[in-house]
Simulated scan of single mutants.
Amino acid sequence: MSYPDGVLALVTGGASGIGAATAARLRADGVRVVTADLAPGADEKLDVTDPDATEALVAELGPVGILVHSAGIVGPAQPLTELGLDEWRKAFRVNVDGTFLMCRAVVPGMVRNGWGRIVTLASIAAKDGNPAQSAYSASKAAVVALTKSLGKELATTGVLVNAVAPAAVSTPMNADTDPAVLARSQALTPMGRFGTPEEIAELVAWLCSERVSFSTGAVYDASGGRASY
């Protein structure tokens, strides 16, 4: 892959899973990477739902040329009628507000520099609407719409904004997911298996690179054949 000399990548949710794999993949290409997460093991501790904290971190780091926003939660696997409003709001606060706040923090600097790459992590659930995961599915659909809107908004600035929509991936985020939900996802996947963080990281790294120049506001599936549109 090719990247601008000295470019800095900020990877949220970087302590584990897709975020950690992406950070490792970018570092292997010589990119300076800072990981941010609430979980131990990241370079910076960050609550992506905190507007002051997100702005402060970006200001402290200096120009961020690449944002990979991988921080997110699955939330409860419950029928909609049993889902509490607080649980619904938490999924949106982390998955949607977090995406909005991180993008808002990095976009001005990217636009000033005339170059930037933002990759958001959506989900196949945003397209399919997983049963008993209404909050997760709806919040990831919002991430897709936000990405499309921002990609169009910045289309002439040199800043490209794209989303990756994985099917189920073997990550710590799915450790507490209802086994029935995971089994359904695997059964719907023609490859018959879960993805790995490293497989998703390959796609993300490409979207962060200079090799991508005519794609923005797009959603890239990584679903083992499950995605149908």
Rank of each mutant, 00 (worst) to 15 (best):
Q133V: 04
S215F: 08
P76I: 05
G109C: 11
S213F: 02
L182T: 03
S139I: 09
E55D: 15
L188G: 00
N130L: 11
A141Q: 03
A222M: 11
R193G: 12
S134R: 04
L61M: 05
K127C: 04
S209Q: 06
T120W: 01
M1V: 07
L121S: 04
A39D: 10
G116V: 00
Y136R: 01
G13E: 02
P190V: 09
Y229K: 15
A138N: 14
V68R: 04
A36F: 06
A142S: 14
A59H: 03
L188C: 00
R112N: 15
L8Y: 04
K127M: 07
G62N: 04
E153L: 09
K152E: 05
N162P: 15
S223Q: 02
A122H: 02
D5I: 14
R193E: 10
M173P: 03
A145K: 13
R193M: 13
S170D: 15
K127I: 09
R112W: 07
R27V: 12
F92A: 01
A183N: 10
G116W: 00
A24T: 03
L61T: 10
G217S: 06
D50K: 13
V74W: 09
T157L: 01
A155K: 14
T99I: 01
M102P: 07
A122M: 06
F194S: 15
A175N: 08
A227C: 04
E153D: 12
S223W: 01
P190I: 04
F92L: 10
G75V: 14
A222W: 05
I66R: 06
M110R: 07
V7R: 07
L46C: 07
G17T: 12
V169Q: 08
D50L: 10
P40S: 03
R93P: 03
A122N: 05
A36E: 06
P108L: 13
S215R: 09
F194P: 09
V169F: 02
G14Y: 13
D176N: 15
P79V: 02
T12G: 02
G14A: 02
G192Q: 09
N174V: 14
V219K: 07
R27W: 00
G98E: 10
D97N: 14
A138M: 12
A126M: 03
V107C: 05
D97E: 15
A91V: 12
V144R: 07
K152N: 12
L101I: 08
L182M: 14
A91M: 08
T99N: 02
K152M: 07
S134W: 00
A28V: 08
G225Q: 14
A20E: 06
G98R: 11
I200K: 05
L182D: 01
Q78R: 15
L85G: 04
V212Q: 12
H69A: 01
T49N: 08
V181Q: 04
A56L: 09
A42L: 08
V143A: 10
A155C: 14
R117T: 13
V169P: 07
G158T: 06
I18W: 00
G72N: 05
